[in-house]
Computed example of a mutant assay.
Amino acid sequence: MPYWRLSAYYFCYFAFVGAFSPYFTLYLKALSFSATDIAVLMSLMQVMRVLAPNLWGWLAEHLGVRLPIVRLSALMSLAGFSVFFFTDSFAGIFLGMALMSFFWSASLPLIESVTFAHLGTQGHRYGSVRAWGSVGFIVAVIGLGVVLDWLPIMAVLWGTASVLASIFLCSLAVPEAVRPLAHSASASLGDTLRRPEVKALLGACFLMSAAHGAFYVFFSILLVDHGYGKAMVGGLWALGVVSEILVFMFMPRLMRHYSLRAILLFAFSCAVLRFALTGWGVASAALVAFAQVLHGATFGAYHAAAIAAVNRWFAGRLQARGQALYGSLSFGAGGMLGGLVSGLGWETIGPAWTFTLGSGFALAGLLWLVWGWQPGLGEDGTDRPDGGGR
């Protein structure tokens, strides 16, 4: 398995998230955009994650290739981002965001399927590869936060563009993997989607991403408005990702002792607490820090368990489609809903209640999992139509 080449790609991919998500909203605020404008622009990332992954996943399945699409998406993402250097109008930034997001959202589901194909029967090692993405996020969020305490906000554009260029270079080094052979009796996409545990997981993932909407769009703005310095903002983002890395490192052991369902129920319970603490406890750095530690559960444990379930249930040629569906419904549609609702709520009900809405989304997802995914159903792939595991 090309461990270091895959890890380098994840490092750079999530370094982009670390540079872009916390600080691009501050750049937009510096351009005097309203909270609603910022929410609309940032939600374009989620809109494209609804549309693009399924299109690119379908194309990869029919062409029988994944990495050429990943490389094209990296190059075109950089081209779309470069638009920001030439305009500060809402229309111009909207166009650049749409172009960048359409191509950027294509790559992750395909890389995830390539990674699991390389891992083969060692799928439990996914966390150790994905953890390098979290390291990349930390390097970017802390590094750029320190830089922004000394340089103008325009440095966000230069730092983020350089990371996008590195994603393209890393994509050139990742080798294609042999696709797993689908069993002749394996389920169709429709059969898989009709399973109650699959519907419960995808619906709950939609709600979990909606719960994170206010956090990804307004967390940095919330902190700066309450007097936190940009280096402190970066440090709090990094704290959350450090806890995420620790969880990823322990996921193989956790998955041997606990079911995927149990891990997900714990993660959703933590999300209910986390976003309420963030909204109402922002005046206390200690409370905010504790809420950020919960990121290890609300993203790290949640994502590792969810993607393992998707990889288990969407087998063979359905793997890329399953990853794309998971990404588009959760990070795409759910993130879009959460981002837009938070933009409307920020200027009407205020930050604290906006984050409380996130807790409400997480609670709804928790209840859906409890009632829709019965204990023991869908674990270890034993109830798949082909009767086999991974």
Rank of each mutant, 00 (worst) to 15 (best):
I142F: 09
L369T: 09
Q292I: 04
S34P: 04
D225W: 00
R49M: 14
I93A: 09
K199D: 01
R130W: 08
A211F: 04
L239D: 06
A173I: 02
L99T: 12
L236A: 03
Q323E: 04
H183F: 05
L67I: 08
P2Y: 08
R253H: 11
A140T: 14
V47T: 13
Q292R: 09
A60Q: 05
H226Y: 03
R390S: 12
F290N: 01
M1R: 12
A79P: 03
D383Q: 15
G387W: 03
V288F: 00
G300F: 06
L201P: 13
L337I: 15
D380H: 15
L239F: 02
D88V: 10
H226G: 02
S32H: 14
S342E: 03
L31W: 09
G339D: 03
G127N: 07
F81E: 02
R261F: 07
E61R: 14
S171W: 04
L337C: 14
L277P: 00
L318I: 04
A140W: 12
L108A: 08
T25L: 05
L201H: 08
D225Q: 13
A161M: 13
V163P: 09
H303F: 13
L287F: 01
P180Q: 06
R384A: 11
T382I: 14
H118W: 08
Q374I: 07
Y258E: 09
R125I: 03
V174A: 00
L151T: 10
S359A: 12
S89Q: 04
G358S: 11
A39T: 01
R312H: 12
R317A: 13
L273D: 01
E347Q: 15
C12N: 10
L172V: 10
G143S: 13
P385E: 13
A276Y: 13
T278F: 12
L260R: 10
G316F: 06
W4L: 14
L108G: 10
S209Q: 14
L119D: 10
V129M: 11
I38K: 01
I221C: 00
D149S: 14
M232H: 11
V272G: 01
T356N: 12
K199F: 12
A79C: 10
I93Y: 07
L55F: 12
S166E: 01
V247D: 07
L202Q: 08
G227A: 03
S220H: 06
T36L: 14
G227V: 08
G123S: 15
L95E: 02
T87V: 07
A131Y: 05
F355E: 00
P152F: 12
R49V: 10
V129N: 01
G240F: 04
D386L: 04
V129A: 07
R49S: 14
F168W: 13
A262S: 14
Y27G: 05
A140I: 12
A333H: 09
F215C: 01
F20T: 02
V224Y: 00
L110N: 09
L344I: 06
E244A: 09
T354C: 08
V141H: 00
V40Q: 12
M45F: 13
L294V: 03
W104S: 11
S330N: 04
L337G: 03
G279V: 02
R49K: 15
G234H: 05
S284I: 01
G335D: 04
H212V: 06
G338N: 03
E112Y: 03
V163N: 08
A211I: 06
L201Y: 08
L222I: 00
V114R: 00
A106F: 01
A98D: 09
